Amino acid sequence: MKNIKKFTGILLALTLAFGVTGCGSSQNNNTTKKATQTETTSTENKELKKVIIGTTGLDGSLTENAAIAQKEKFFEEELEKVGYYPEYQAFAQAGPAINEAFSSGAIDFAAYGDLPAITAKSNGIDIEVIATTSSDMAYSLVVNDNLDISSIADLKGKKIVVGFGNSTYKFLSDILEKNGLTINDVKIVNSATDGPTMLPANQADAFVTAESPALLYQANGIGKVFDTSDVASELSSLFVLAGRTEFIKENPEVAQAFIKALQRAYEFAQENPGKVYEDLATDSFPAEFQQQVYTDTTFAEFNPAIDDTTLKKAESTVSFLKENNIITNDVNVDKFFNTAVYDEAVQK
């Protein structure tokens, strides 16, 4: 086993980037200022109004298809056509902090997971989903190098690190169920961040994380990725573009501009796969890792359209949240996912 200290910088970056992906409450100073659309900037003598987008990237960067639209300036170009410019606001605490910002009116849109978005809706925050930025967000199980297992069923009685109530917890619950087990058949260590340090210290048998960091952990000797490719797409989750319902109703052209940018990014990805890996790359996850994750160069998961598969995944998430008492109020997926905005955008 490699010296853990060697990876401190990588682990810190990964912890910050992926530590909080679920739902719950947290404080974030980015939510203190209420957004207004009265602020303007001048671009070639044209006054543009500001629209604020919440991001999970620490530097204001977006992920998945939205990252391509951001890097290629598709958001800027489409929004300028309707008199707006984007301001990206980063939330280190991801979903919970973004929900706070929506609640206070500090942001207008956000690209983040369907699980926290559904939680927000259940809690009475008036937002709606207008597109997907990824319909196939995959997760991986990283197991201790010393653990000899040949199937998921062999995890019975093992100690697994995962954050309760977030998307990784749902993935673990689903994959155990697919293999005849339940969450009660394993020993859960409730943490979204401690897996990469507990595993090499032999304090845990496995942890769950997103696919990209899983590959990086494996490359750096933290553990080995257990192959779940047979059910990866089936058990993947959604990343969505959500917006405040009031803002969307008052500014439909802005919502449509976002969708047009995402549609352009999807088409760009199909035509320029090499450039896509560069656009998705970060300091922690370089292009070569992105290429391992996105092996299908049709990039079907980047299609922003909301289809039957999208809705079924969202309904599965609603059921999971209710069954685990994470939400109490039901969410009508057919109403929450507003397909009319997309339809109007692509027809123009």
Rank of each mutant, 00 (worst) to 15 (best):
N325G: 01
G180T: 01
A138Q: 14
K33M: 10
E271R: 12
S61K: 14
N324V: 04
A117I: 01
G9M: 06
N45I: 09
L321M: 15
Y84M: 10
F239P: 00
V82S: 03
E250S: 12
Y139W: 10
I160G: 06
E278Y: 01
V129R: 02
T317M: 11
A261N: 08
Y139F: 14
V240H: 03
I222T: 10
K159P: 02
T21M: 14
L11S: 02
G180P: 04
P213Q: 09
D114Q: 12
N202W: 02
D59N: 13
L79H: 04
L155T: 06
I98K: 00
P252Y: 01
E80C: 03
P273W: 10
L262G: 05
T282N: 06
G195P: 02
L176S: 04
A67H: 00
Y139M: 12
N303P: 04
K6T: 15
L235F: 05
A261F: 10
D194W: 01
F109W: 04
I160Q: 09
I149L: 05
T36A: 07
L172Y: 08
E64N: 13
L181W: 11
S140I: 02
T32W: 09
I118V: 13
N123S: 15
I127V: 14
T339Q: 15
T31P: 06
T32N: 12
T193E: 14
K81P: 07
E128F: 05
I68T: 02
V51R: 08
K50F: 03
E78P: 02
E267S: 04
Y112P: 02
V162A: 11
A300T: 11
K249A: 12
A257E: 07
A94Y: 01
N325F: 06
F226N: 07
S104F: 08
L241T: 05
T133I: 14
K159G: 04
L311Y: 00
I130F: 03
I306S: 03
L48A: 10
N329M: 04
S173G: 02
G83E: 08
Y294I: 01
E100Y: 00
E246Y: 11
F207S: 05
T41S: 11
L181R: 10
N338K: 14
D296Y: 07
P304V: 09
V225Q: 03
D174M: 09
T297V: 15
E87Y: 13
A67I: 02
T56R: 09
Q37A: 08
G180N: 09
A106E: 02
T38P: 00
K6F: 09
E271W: 05
N329D: 14
K178E: 15
L12N: 10
K156Y: 02
F109K: 03
L172Q: 05
G223S: 11
I125F: 07
S167C: 06
S237T: 13
I125Q: 08
Q70E: 13
L12C: 09
N28Y: 13
K249Q: 15
V142P: 07
N303V: 10
A97E: 07
I326T: 04
A92L: 13
A300W: 10
